[in-house]
């Protein structure tokens, strides 16, 4: 009899455990779903090719990056070259369509936001070691479905909110808060079309930003990249 009660208590304990899901439970499931920490931690460089679709136009782009060293985005529209470079200490941008005909340095405030992007491994891979803090905010409805919502504050002080799909364990939506001149501006992106790469990790091939969609065509993991492309001027 005692044994029965004991096993029953244990069963209840398991049930209780399940209901008290922690942020790390959700994050761990997510990491498993995208290929696991081991593979992701070995991502040291990346090259992405794709296009930005906006108002019926498709603007091709290439992103190249070396983990925590540098990132460069190149795009072209009607023969005009748009370039964006971020390094841990400096950043530059060039966009003739926006009145920046040549490569110009970006402000510290802009750089702070972009620093997180130098981590090409997923935000949640070894997030503790990288200095990020997370908090489970509970469940929240988005587009008629409930998602687990987790808040992350990165080492650089940027705030992000992630919506985790309870069926696929993948991230459906990411909201970020960017501070400009003491005021906060919220932006959000929906991550769609997750695909498994030959390398063995899973990534979203589409980022829906409402007015704009980023469509990835090709991803190369750990290509050889010449660091000199991260020099602004």
């Amino acid at each position: 009899m005692k044994k029965v009660i004991l096993s029953l208590t244990m069963f209840l304990a398991v049930v209780l455990n399940l209901s008290a899901q922690t942020a790390d439970d959700i994050i761990n499931k997510y990491i498993t779903a995208i290929g696991g920490t081991e593979k992701w931690a070995k991502v040291q460089s990346i090259k992405v090719e794709g296009q930005i679709e906006i108002q019926g136009l498709a603007i091709p782009f290439t992103v190249q990056g070396i983990q925590m060293k540098g990132m460069r985005m190149d795009a072209e529209f009607q023969g005009n070259k748009i370039i964006d470079i971020t390094t841990p200490t400096k950043g530059w941008s060039q966009n003739p369509l926006m009145g920046k005909a040549n490569m110009e340095p970006i402000s510290e405030e802009e750089l702070k936001v972009k620093l997180d992007e130098l981590d090409f491994q997923d935000d949640f891979i070894n997030y503790k070691e990288k200095g990020s803090k997370v908090e489970l905010l509970g469940k929240e409805e988005e587009d008629g479905t409930e998602y687990n919502k987790i808040k992350m504050v990165t080492k650089n002080g940027n705030e992000k909110f992630y919506f985790f799909d309870m069926k696929t364990d993948l991230i459906y939506k990411e909201e970020s808060i960017v501070k400009q001149q003491g005021q906060e501006v919220k932006s959000s992106v929906k991550l769609l079309d997750y695909q498994m790469l030959d390398y063995g990790i899973k990534m979203a091939f589409k980022s829906d930003m409402g007015q704009m969609m980023m469509v990835t065509k090709k991803i190369i993991i750990n290509p050889v990249i010449d660091e000199s492309i991260f020099k602004g001027n």
């Binding site: 019926g56 136009l57 529209f77 009607q78 023969g79 005009n80 003739p96 926006m98 009145g99």
Partner: peptide, 18 residues
Amino acid sequence: KVAKGGFIAQTSIQSSAF
């Protein structure tokens, strides 16, 4: 299709693309 090159920012040339 619009002739490429030179200055296009905020001009009718840029608009011709859509």
